[in-house]
Design a protein around this nucleic acid. Structure first.
Lengths: 227, 227
DNA sequence: GTCTATACCCCGATAGAC
DNA sequence: GTCTATCGGGGTATAGAC
């Protein structure tokens, strides 16, 4: 049986996941598949094309995680679930996650190839849809441009994950999940309407119903889930 | 005059800034300095050591930017100024900024060398000090752990800059500055106390004094500076 | 079509001459 | 302190075996 593109991509990904780009050479890759390096060029035009395929795979995997959120019943649940799934993806496949946010020049590209850009655009759109749903349902403030709200939340989520992965927080993964949720909650206390404050756990705090002014939340314990 | 470490680091940085890691080889570097590659090994033990020195330089440069904020008069001004200086640094030296947040394995490291970790820690501490000041002055909500507040803001700032640098926002630099400030403002509307809401521009909006409930801010124009 | 063998040039790094 | 010479290992183009 001849070698398939998917075999190459699979082993390339495995190599990358184990030892980073350093471990991923065409010779290494070929040896894993029991062939010599030039044989790979029958299936991929260059190492670059292998990398591109890997990035696409990262987006594809990411999509399988966050799309599970669509099975949730309400806009708010879909939104929260998407956040959880994204966190799961990032923690389970950190290098795939990282690849999605690496500068193009990391791969020697001056810009992203069209198919990668399309995946990125689709992911972006998914998040915007989640935000739009929540705005329409009255859970998030309506602004002149919905994308601005999504962008702020996206920035927070991605920034936090990056900082964690960089090792600057010195937290266990389990602890980081709590921290992530707590931080997301802080975001929502700013972004959410009173309706959201009422629905998201305010009822569990000291008998308050969350309809008072925001300063009442000042010393809340944030280590619980935001939903 | 013999070659100095600073000459090597300077040219290495220039090469990296122009063409990324691909353009930075010991041979290239040596050619730029008018010597041959092995000569560099009198000054640096390895290419790795050059990289480490470059990352340290990135932190040093970053520090010169954000430390200017200390000349501002009040905690709130120092905090905002630090944000502006950090944005300036990121936009003026995107690759230096990027280096500060690259995973260690980008450089072939399993972890950060101690001197780099120390710089990162100092930068972290600087931001925590800015947050602490603002909490003490009553501008930011006091939480059980101050670092949590700083972390949320840090994550937002870094995430937004990363997304912009990745080219996903398709904005001009000037427009991005507005977007950054607007997004930071959204964060503060969640993080700030009423005192902050009163001081930060609420007075300019339709004659409101900002002391009402937060839903009044729902459709505010956010494209102005957050301070 | 698919793979091997070979070859070229660039890389990081070392040894030893000057 | 810098050179030349050299090593092992990369990406990949080419030629040709099956």
């Amino acid at each position: 049986m001849a070698i398939q593109r998917s075999d190459i991509r699979g082993h390339a990904t495995e190599l990358y996941l184990c030892g980073g780009l350093r471990a991923l050479s065409m010779r290494n890759l070929a040896a894993r598949l029991g062939v010599t390096a030039p044989a790979l060029y029958r299936h991929y035009g260059s190492k670059d094309e292998v990398l591109r395929d890997m990035v696409r795979e990262a987006y594809r995997q990411s999509a399988t995680y966050i799309h599970r959120a669509l099975s949730a019943a309400t806009p708010l649940d879909r939104f929260r679930r998407a956040g959880e799934e994204n966190l799961d993806f990032a923690l389970t496949h950190p290098r795939w996650y990282e690849m999605m946010y690496l500068s193009p020049e990391r791969f020697g590209w001056s810009d992203y190839p069209p198919e990668v850009a399309a995946h990125a655009q689709a992911t972006h759109q998914f998040w915007m849809d989640r935000v739009r749903e929540c705005v329409d349902a009255g859970y998030l403030r309506a602004e002149s441009d919905i994308r601005d709200v999504g962008m702020t939340m996206w920035a927070h989520s991605h920034g936090l994950i990056t900082i964690y992965m960089r090792g600057l927080l010195e937290l266990s993964e389990a602890r980081f999940r709590d921290v992530y949720r707590a931080s997301a909650r802080r975001m929502l206390l700013g972004l959410g309407t009173r309706k959201l404050l009422r629905e998201v756990g305010a009822g569990e705090r000291d008998g308050e119903d969350g309809s008072g002014d925001v300063d009442h939340l000042q010393n809340t314990e944030y280590s619980e889930a935001y939903g």
